[in-house]
Design a protein around this nucleic acid. Structure first.
Lengths: 234, 234
DNA sequence: TCTGAAGTAATGTGATCACATTTAACGTAG
DNA sequence: CTACGTTAAATGTGATCACATTACTTCAGA
């Protein structure tokens, strides 16, 4: 089994390959917020012409992973308090929906895969491997939700993940520096327990808890007052 | 005041102009589901080279308004029962959120604009102008939600609208043919009443009712059993 | 040391061409 | 008239060049 489920995909076009390379780099937190990227820079880095890069960046800007500034420059968007709160309000409702939707389809093999992913996730913490930690978090969620075969939900969630990924590094660098992992409840563990118990409400609670932890972590890392993000209808 | 709020936008690039032209055409129901479009066809129609069209279609495929088939062809995606149900489950929660979010920001001028839009919307029914009817429906919702200045929600909703727009024509062609407009409750009217009353719950109910009417209309037009689409948590 | 202007390098956009793949058209054998 | 290869047209992708605009460097003056 591979660390990254879709790492060995064969791409039909260069544009597709470039897109997924950049996408994974973003989800690993390799892109610094506010920093700009250039067509020719990426093209020479990946040894392709401008065309595949142009179309890849067009996709990523459409997904709000990157931003076209008025200067005609392409950059990683900055985060604001309002934007972060909006993202997490949406994440909470949609990811709870996605998790509950997936629950009936989780068989033993899928459960084992989730457990294995969570182990690797925890191992990344132990190793201080921030990039893998950030990435494996998304992969855990994606693997879970994909079991419900969501055609419409999934692209929306991936877009939201791309928007917050560049800021995740700040959260965990701070936590690693201070060394206080104890505050971090393992909501993934609780989600797995809920799955085993077949408890839909507990699974939803675990996902919601995971979201809230993430939101609070980001807010404190940005130096903002960690105000609670309310669910729709309490 | 204009029928279409953003009709007279000056575009900085050709790609942007082509994108918004195609986008509006889709939202007007001008695109037939399953029908394929070609780069050169659109390019010659709009009198531009392939480049702006390529990037515009890349954007639209990323937003799921169009689809890249394995044959290397670009087409309007087909709808399925599962997909439609998924879209409307998401629309219900997100658009209720967007409406409630916008409510405190609706001043007299904004209210007047909404009323005017709704009048034009109703006038389009009377004139049998299906394309304007379809389009003005989206514009009404967008104008309402934009008052809350949603940065993250709005692109998601617009993507969902692009996905259902090509199928709206079927709904209203059937209704116009049968001439039974009486079944159509004017949920927009009720939304406006709720806004005037400042009643958040009533506004949410009106939006949810509008969504459910739309879902049922699409399901019956597609010849599917019009099963109720449940909200999250009942 | 700092400020500002002139010149240079770099950037995204648009256009054009070449190519592999796919689709459509055509004509021939049955 | 039908079925089936063969040829021709059309399609999305990739590469390269030109260009207007923006950003950076450099150097003069205070």
């Amino acid at each position: 089994m591979n660390t990254v489920p879709d790492e060995k995909i064969e791409f039909k076009t260069q544009q597709e390959r470039v897109y997924y390379l950049l996408r994974e780099a973003i989800l690993r937190g390799k892109f610094e917020p506010g920093k700009s990227v250039t067509l020719r820079g990426i093209a020479s880095m990946l040894d392709v012409s401008l065309m595949p890069v142009r179309e890849s960046l067009r996709r990523l800007t459409t997904e709000r992973a990157l931003e076209l500034l008025s200067n005609r420059r392409i950059a990683v968007p900055e985060m604001t308090q309002l934007k972060l709160e909006e993202i997490y309000r949406i994440r909470i409702v949609l990811e709870c929906e996605a998790a509950v939707r997936a629950l009936p389809y989780i068989d033993d093999a899928a459960l084992a895969q989730l457990v294995a992913l969570n182990e690797k996730h925890n191992k990344a913490i132990a190793n201080g491997d921030i990039e893998n930690y950030i990435y494996l978090n998304f992969i855990f969620h994606r693997t879970l939700y994909n079991l419900g075969q969501p055609q419409v939900l999934m692209p929306i969630l991936e877009s939201l993940w791309l928007q917050i990924a560049p800021f995740m590094r700040m959260v965990y660098e701070e936590i690693f520096a201070q060394g206080n992992f104890s505050d971090m409840e393992d909501q993934h563990e609780q989600a797995i327990a809920a799955i085993i118990a077949g408890d839909s409400d507990a699974l939803e609670a675990a996902i919601r808890g995971d979201m809230l932890d993430g939101a609070i972590g980001l807010q404190t890392a940005m130096g903002w007052p960690p105000q609670a993000i309310s669910l729709l209808k309490g």
